[in-house]
């Protein structure tokens, strides 16, 4: 029993220590964005790697999510004779919740894992050490551009997810199930208010920063060898997905 309590205590200490380490890492990384050299080119490269390369998968996920929501929503609303509210149901669900959360999870699976693997390999092959010995701060050259790219790219990807999802819902609700096109868009225009959009943007900003922070941190502190990189990559995907869902609850409770 005492052993169990000891292990639990050690685990808790490790979690607190890692959370503290991540916060220091984040502050160091972001503060370096204010110190020259500013590296706009590196930021653009990372926006391409994290954002542009995730566009297709985010569009696919958005389209199918919108289609499923229209299908489910249509049969539920039909029972109450409210098919006309389909547009507002799809748009609100996507903008407030599904868009930011699913985009975050997709980015974590595609770009987050790639970021961890890239930095992890740089660590084990001494490329980060090489930067340091050339008087180039690895945090500024490698980590800072990725953090900024995450904050910029994820909200844009979320907007793409929302638009494609709404069009997917239109395809199923209007084209296939016969809901009036006018009521689909009019309901949307009536029910979606700026607070919903702002809430979605804030969530996606926080998710973007969280995912890339976890990915960079895990890669930067990876264990030795291929096993270390594989473990770090796995931890990134799991931890960032859990943190996205946890942050979603916290932020939703603020915006409701």
């Amino acid at each position: 029993m005492a052993n169990l309590v000891r292990q639990l205590g050690q685990r808790s200490l490790n979690i607190v220590q890692e959370a503290g380490g991540m916060m220091i890492f984040l502050l160091e990384g972001l503060s370096l964005a204010l110190v020259p050299p500013f590296r706009p080119r590196r930021v653009l490269e990372e926006i391409y790697q994290i954002g542009v390369k995730s566009t297709l998968i985010v569009m696919l996920t958005g389209a199918f999510t919108g289609m499923v929501m229209a299908l489910q929503g249509y049969y539920t609303l039909k029972q109450y004779g409210s098919e006309g509210a389909l547009g507002s149901a799809v748009a609100l669900s996507l903008i407030r919740e599904m868009g930011p959360v699913l985009t975050g999870i997709m980015v974590s699976a595609r770009a987050g894992s790639a970021v961890t693997a890239e930095i992890g390999i740089m660590r084990i092959t001494e490329q980060l050490d090489a930067l340091d010995t050339m008087a180039v701060n690895p945090l500024q050259y490698v980590v800072m551009p990725k953090l900024l790219a995450g904050v910029i790219a994820v909200p844009l990807l979320t907007a793409i997810f929302d638009v494609v999802g709404i069009l997917g819902g239109y395809l199923v609700g209007v084209v296939l199930l016969g809901v009036s096109s006018g009521s689909y868009f009019a309901g949307m225009a009536r029910s979606v208010v700026p607070l919903d959009i702002n809430g979605g943007i804030v969530k996606s900003l926080v998710f973007g920063l969280t995912i890339i922070l976890v990915a960079c941190y895990k890669g930067y502190h990876t264990g030795p060898g291929a096993e270390g990189v594989s473990k770090a990559t796995n931890q990134t995907v799991v931890l960032s997905a859990v943190l996205v869902l946890a942050w979603d609850y916290v932020l939703t409770s603020f915006f409701m």
């Binding site: 390999i121 740089m122 092959t125 001494e126 490329q127 050490d129 090489a130 340091d132 010995t133 050339m134 008087a135």
Partner: peptide, 15 residues
Amino acid sequence: KRRFGVLFQGGALFD
């Protein structure tokens, strides 16, 4: 460290 040059074991060339 600008005064130093280091040849790492695996080369540490940027991929």
